[in-house]
Design a protein around this nucleic acid. Structure first.
Lengths: 137, 137
DNA sequence: CTGCACCCCGTAGCGGCTACGGGTGCAAGA
DNA sequence: TCTTGCACCCGTAGCCGCTACGGGGTGCAG
């Protein structure tokens, strides 16, 4: 099948993940320990690529490591319960929406403040004003 | 003037900051080391409250510690250059907008995916599908 | 004078990596 | 055949911005 052994480096680039991150995932037991060659090098299988790629995509979507653990467990048996997966995803979505709202508020305040800047070397500065004055939010 | 000594605890609650955080700010030299009583307790002045409150508001607006160092330096002389302050704030605003865009994209993907969930204990799950399938973003 | 809140300090932990340093293995070119 | 140079091995420390912990000492009110 495979001409060349699936080393950690090849696994990492196949899944689009940093090599050190793969070793980190093994340490925290998110990736299972692979077989070893006689000289101690890690020897992976195809399945590891799929698992690592799953993890990477979940991270890109902002799921936490612990959430990914749950998702991986739920994905494992073929008869996974969509409802449980949905719950994890919904929880994460709620968190994302909360952060989004916070960040949008921030953006508005910053944008308004910066927009008031004259650019002059003036003694009064809207940015410093907002930081110096009692908050009103 | 002040009836009671301005201890770290009173400073912290006056500025709305955790007490441990104040000691942390002192360690990283964001707050200057205050005078000490004979028994070694920290004795602050009014100015410390203003500085700490400035820091807290800047943190609430998402400025990094290093950015705050810069802002504090620029705020110090009365003849601060608004242009330099504006630059720091604009940089931060750009970062906030980038994160906002990322998060909004995330929200959309998650929301669409979760919306497709039937809630049934079905074998196929849109959330797992998106994690298992090659990404398309 | 006792009890308790407050303060002192140093250190370790959080999440999710990333980097470093010092050593071995392995494949391919000269 | 030798050697070059990359890939791999491992443990540990660092990043950010705190927060928590543990084992003490201090100050004030009842």
């Amino acid at each position: 099948m495979s001409r060349r052994p699936l080393t950690i480096g090849r696994l990492a680039s196949a899944a689009g993940v940093n090599l050190e991150t793969v070793r980190y995932y093994e340490r925290i037991k998110l990736m299972p320990p692979p077989a070893r060659t006689a000289s101690g090098h890690r020897a992976y299988e195809e399945g590891h690529i799929r698992r690592l790629a799953f993890i990477r995509r979940a991270r890109e979507l902002g799921f936490s490591i612990e959430q990914i653990r749950t998702l991986l467990a739920l994905a494992e048996p073929t008869r996974a319960s969509c409802a449980e997966v949905q719950e994890v995803a919904q929880t994460h979505l709620d968190e994302v929406r909360a952060k989004l709202a916070d960040l949008a508020k921030l953006e508005r305040i910053l944008a308004e403040t910066v927009a008031r800047c004259s650019g002059d070397p003036a003694p009064t500065c809207p940015v410093l004003d907002i930081l110096t004055t009692q908050k009103r939010a």
